[in-house]
Simulated scan of single mutants.
Amino acid sequence: MRRFIIPLLFGLIGAAVLISLGVWQIQRLTWKESILTEIEGRVTAPPVALPDTPDVETDKYRAVVVTGDVLAPYLRVLDSRKRIGPGYRLINVMQVGERRILLDRGFVTQDEQPTEGRYADATVTGNLVWPDDKNSSTPEPDLEQNLWFARDVDAMAAVLDAEPTLIVARETSFYDTPVTPLPVDRISIPNDHLEYAITWFSLAAIWLVMTGYFIRRMRHKPEGTET
């Protein structure tokens, strides 16, 4: 029986580690659901005026309404929609009083030809967003081709001479076809913790099955023979 102790312990400890990771993901799922509920409350709240100094911590996803002039040109951000295909988000400057902010007008496919986006006295209802699209593997924008690979608010604001404040449009007072607004909602905010938990629990089950199979094979081999 001694020769079974090490593989058995190895199997049980490995499974325990994998199960603990699955439990941790379930706990993260509960935490994320509470965060998403709070975000949904902000997203769907009655819109307010644009804060004088928007704060990423307190104002993220806040519903706002602004009136001003949408200015050309726009920046193109590579994007893709399910059942639609690849295309671009369009980012314009919106002049609101003395302020120049960024406006995410929405999505167009690669084949569509949107207008530049010159709209005077426009009213936009949307949400303040500081996207986390960019990561360490995101390419730098191709400024000559006007092609961006993430909504890098600070970099876009510098290029367009605007403040680093982005509104994602939900409703607009102007006719903007073929642009389709992509309003913020909880569906657009990733929550993959359940899938991660299932993965860890599945790996734990596989680990236990393989441990049992290995021990079963050991039982059918005489002690001292090579495995």
Rank of each mutant, 00 (worst) to 15 (best):
R2H: 14
R3K: 12
R3Y: 13
F4I: 12
I5F: 13
P7Q: 13
F10L: 15
G11I: 08
L12T: 08
I13G: 01
V17I: 15
S20E: 07
R28C: 07
L29C: 09
W31Q: 15
I39H: 09
E40H: 12
R42K: 15
R42Y: 05
V43Q: 02
T44L: 13
A45C: 04
P47C: 15
V48D: 07
V48W: 02
V48C: 01
A49F: 06
L50V: 09
L50I: 12
D52E: 15
D52P: 01
D52W: 00
T53R: 13
T58M: 10
A63G: 09
T67W: 10
V70K: 03
L71A: 08
P73W: 00
L75S: 05
R76L: 09
V77N: 04
V77L: 00
R81G: 05
R81H: 14
K82T: 15
K82M: 09
P86E: 15
R89Y: 14
R89T: 07
I91K: 00
M94Y: 02
G97T: 04
R100G: 04
L102P: 00
G106Y: 11
F107V: 11
D111T: 15
Q113E: 14
E116C: 01
G117Y: 04
R118A: 11
Y119D: 09
A120T: 14
T123A: 12
T123E: 14
G126R: 02
N127Q: 15
L128I: 10
L128H: 03
V129H: 00
V129D: 02
W130L: 03
P131G: 06
D132M: 03
D132V: 04
D132C: 00
D133L: 11
N135R: 10
N135D: 15
N135G: 15
S136A: 12
S136Q: 09
S137E: 11
T138N: 03
P141S: 07
E144Y: 03
E144V: 12
E144C: 04
W148I: 10
W148E: 07
R151D: 05
D152P: 00
V153E: 02
D154R: 06
D154Y: 05
A158D: 09
V159H: 02
L160S: 04
A162N: 02
E163R: 09
E163V: 15
P164S: 13
T165A: 11
T165R: 02
T165E: 09
L166E: 07
R170C: 02
E171A: 08
T172R: 08
T172E: 12
S173A: 07
F174T: 06
V179N: 02
V179D: 04
P181L: 13
P181I: 13
P183A: 14
I187K: 13
I187P: 00
P190G: 11
P190C: 10
L194K: 07
L194S: 06
W200E: 12
F201E: 07
S202L: 08
L203C: 07
A205Y: 04
L208A: 10
T211P: 01
T211E: 05
Y213I: 10
F214R: 10
I215H: 01
I215C: 12
M218Q: 14
R219E: 08
R219C: 04
K221P: 01
E226K: 13
